[in-house]
C-alpha cells in the first residue's frame, strides 16, 4: 500500500485529563476514499479522539498528519479550512437561523474570512440555489424557511449533514450520526452517508452495528482509550477480544 494512500494518520495520539488517560497511544490510519468506523463501548474515548483530530482538544502526546502535513499544532478553524469537517454527537445546528441560512453559513465560508459588516446580506442570495440543492439532497428542502430549532430530530441531523457537505470536505468526521433516531431515519441517514461519501473520506463513530456493517470499509475498535482491534466487519465480529469488550461493559 502506497504511503500517500492515507489521508489522515496519527502516531501515538494520547490525551490525559487530570491523570486519567482517555486516549492512549492511538495509531490510526484512514485510507483515502474509504468509510472508516470507530466503535467501542461508551467512554472508550471516541469523541475525545474526534476532538483531538479536529484540534478542539490539544493532544498530550502524539502527532496528527493530514495529507502528509503535520497538523498537530494547528487551531480548530485552521484544521476545518484544510478540509476536515466534523459533526457533533449532540446535533449542532444554528437554532434561530432557518435551515437555508444554516447551510448558507457554511457556503459563505468560500468568501474567506470576511469582516465586511458594511455590506448588505443580499450578496448571500447568490448561495441560495446551492443551499436549496443541498437541502434537497438530504430530503428537507420543504423546511428551507423554518428555523432549525423547530425541526424534528432526524431533520436536524439531516440539516447538519447538509451543512457539513456544503464545505465539500475532504474528510468528514461524523460523531454518532444516527444516535437517537427512529428506524426509518437511520436507514435514510445511512443511505445519505453512503451517497455523500463518494469521492470523500469519512470517519464515523457509530453504535448501530447494522449501519457499521453496511457502510464501513475499515473498523477500528477502541476500548478504554486504546485500539483493541482493526479490520473489516467480518474480522472484527469474529474477534474474541472485541466480543469481550462489548460484553464486559454496557453497549450504548
Amino acid at each position: 500500500m502506497a504511503v500517500d494512500d492515507a489521508i489522515l494518520e496519527t502516531e501515538g495520539l494520547s490525551k490525559e485529563f487530570r491523570g486519567f488517560l482517555a486516549v492512549k497511544n492511538v495509531h490510526l490510519r484512514i485510507r483515502r476514499g474509504t468509510i472508516h468506523a470507530l466503535i467501542g463501548p461508551n467512554g472508550a474515548g471516541k469523541t475525545t479522539c474526534f476532538n483531538l483530530l479536529t484540534k478542539f482538544l490539544q493532544p498530550t502526546a502524539g502527532r496528527i498528519r493530514f495529507e502528509g502535513r503535520d497538523i498537530t499544532a494547528l487551531r480548530p478553524a485552521q484544521v476545518a479550512k484544510l478540509g476536515i469537517v466534523r459533526s457533533f454527537q449532540i446535533s449542532a445546528v444554528f437554532g434561530h437561523l432557518t435551515a437555508l441560512e444554516n447551510v448558507r453559513v457554511a457556503l459563505q465560508r468560500e468568501r474567506g474570512e470576511s469582516f465586511d459588516f458594511w455590506r448588505s446580506h443580499s450578496v448571500l442570495r447568490a448561495y441560495d440555489g446551492r443551499a436549496r440543492e443541498l437541502l434537497a439532497a438530504v430530503g428537507i428542502e420543504a423546511m428551507a424557511e423554518v428555523p432549525a430549532a423547530e425541526l424534528a430530530y432526524g431533520q436536524k441531523r439531516a440539516l447538519e449533514l447538509a451543512t457539513t457537505i456544503a464545505l465539500e470536505p475532504a474528510l468528514m468526521l461524523l460523531d454518532e450520526p444516527t444516535a437517537g433516531m427512529g428506524r426509518e431515519d437511520v436507514g435514510r441517514i445511512a443511505a445519505l452517508i453512503k451517497q455523500v461519501a463518494k469521492g470523500r473520506t469519512v470517519l464515523m463513530v457509530e453504535h448501530n452495528l447494522a449501519v457499521v456493517a453496511d457502510l464501513s470499509d475499515t473498523i477500528t475498535v477502541l476500548a478504554r482509550g486504546e485500539v483493541l482491534a482493526e479490520g473489516d466487519y467480518a474480522q472484527i465480529s469474529a474477534d474474541p477480544r472485541v466480543r469481550e469488550a462489548y460484553l464486559g461493559s454496557e453497549e450504548g
Binding site: F56, K81, F88, A92
Partner: peptide, 17 residues
C-alpha cells in the same frame, strides 16, 4: 450572519472553519 451563527453555536461555527 456569522456573528449570529457564533451566538447560536460557537463550536459548530468553529468546525465550519
Amino acid at each position: 450572519q456569522v456573528l449570529k451563527a457564533i451566538r447560536e453555536n460557537e463550536p459548530r461555527a468553529v468546525s465550519l472553519g
